[in-house]
């Protein structure tokens, strides 16, 4: 099976197709593929603790989707308290994931 690395740079407040992308992520996972969701730029906005998306991340995590958020993007946006199911990360990790064999990287 393929590992899909999804780089999410957009947030649901600004992007009309954010929800469709999340649906695709779930479908990929339910089809048996490994999926990593890497949030960066405005994609980290909903990783802030207390938003209405906490249950969404809980559900993704329960499916076995690993969720990472770019530390630099979090810092730029003053996000310190994060949703429990999202892990702080950095672009070095993004590179490592992108170069993992059998990985397809998709930027949204």
């Amino acid at each position: 099976m393929t590992h899909y690395l999804i780089l999410e740079s957009r947030d649901p407040f600004d992007s009309a197709d954010w929800a469709t992308m999340q649906e695709m992520i779930i479908n990929l996972r339910e089809s048996g593929h490994d999926v990593t969701l890497f949030l960066l730029q405005n994609g980290v906005l909903i990783a802030r603790k207390g938003t209405s998306f906490e249950s969404h991340f809980f559900n993704l995590k329960a499916l076995g989707i690993n969720i990472l958020a770019d530390f630099f993007s979090l810092q730029e946006r003053g996000i310190q308290n994060m949703v429990m199911d999202v892990e702080k990360s950095h672009l070095d990790r993004l590179i490592q994931l992108c170069l993992t064999p059998n990985t397809k990287t998709i930027w949204h």
């Binding site: 780089l7 992108c98 170069l99 993992t100 064999p101 990287t105 930027w107």
Partner: peptide, 8 residues
């Protein structure tokens, strides 16, 4: 390449 990224 070992990895490919397209940023649209």
């Amino acid at each position: 390449s070992d990895g490919v990224l397209v940023i649209p």
